[in-house]
Amino acid sequence: MNARPGPGDLLIVDRAASVQFAGERALRLRVVSVCDRPTYDGWVWLTGYVLDRRGAATAKREVFVRLAGLRHAPATMPPPRAGRHNADPPETPPRGHRRPRTHDREGRRTAAPPPHAGRRTPGPPAVDSEVSRRPAGTDGAR
């Protein structure tokens, strides 16, 4: 590859790109940026994320490599997990159903609400106002 890579390119960086990446030190790099500072002819500074076998980023690196030694890596999808292709879709809650809030507005975790939260429960029994105004010990009989 003699063309400059661009952000988003997935490259194999091995001994052909620089001796420091020989053997097991070779890596797959997802390019984030290409530095514009002047370097030796045919060399370039790349910033990117090192990807593991599953395609997950493991480290951010800045590497000085030879353009002629870079190769595009095949874009491989991670293997599907066993049993996932036959899984039933998740059950959707009924319309209007709200889950109890588990985080406050600042994103801090809060205690789960009690199981009866949100339900209306009857209050204390109503008290007759006339009976409650009588002095203690009187039953109201004359």
Rank of each mutant, 00 (worst) to 15 (best):
P7H: 14
P115C: 05
R61N: 02
R142H: 10
P80T: 09
P114H: 06
R37H: 11
L51H: 05
S33I: 11
F21L: 13
R15P: 02
G107T: 08
L11G: 00
R108N: 10
A141V: 06
A16V: 02
A141Y: 06
A59K: 15
R95D: 10
L11F: 02
P100W: 01
P78T: 10
R109I: 02
D88H: 08
H97K: 01
G42A: 12
H85K: 13
H116C: 08
A59P: 04
D14S: 15
L70G: 00
L10V: 15
G140C: 13
H85S: 14
P78Y: 05
P125T: 02
H103A: 04
A136L: 13
V32K: 03
T102M: 08
D52S: 14
R84L: 08
N86A: 14
E130S: 12
E24P: 03
P78C: 14
A141L: 14
R61M: 04
T92W: 00
R101H: 02
S132T: 08
P7L: 10
P124K: 12
N86G: 12
V131W: 15
Y49S: 07
P135V: 05
H85G: 12
A17S: 15
D128E: 09
E130Y: 08
E106S: 15
T76F: 04
G23I: 04
D128W: 07
R98D: 04
E62I: 13
D14H: 07
D41H: 08
V34T: 12
A26K: 15
E91P: 01
R105M: 10
H85D: 15
G137F: 14
Y49P: 01
T39Y: 11
I12R: 06
F21I: 11
R109T: 07
L46N: 00
P5W: 06
V31A: 02
V65W: 00
R15E: 14
T58H: 06
Y49I: 07
A111Y: 04
R4E: 03
G123E: 09
T138R: 15
A16E: 03
R30H: 13
A112W: 04
R66W: 01
R81W: 07
V13G: 00
A111E: 08
R98S: 08
G123W: 04
A136D: 12
R101V: 06
R30T: 05
Y40D: 10
T47A: 03
R98Y: 03
S132Q: 14
A111Q: 09
T110H: 02
A3Y: 05
R99C: 01
P78H: 09
R37I: 10
P100F: 02
R109S: 03
L29T: 01
P94Y: 04
G42R: 12
A22N: 14
T102D: 05
R134P: 00
A82L: 14
F64N: 06
D36G: 12
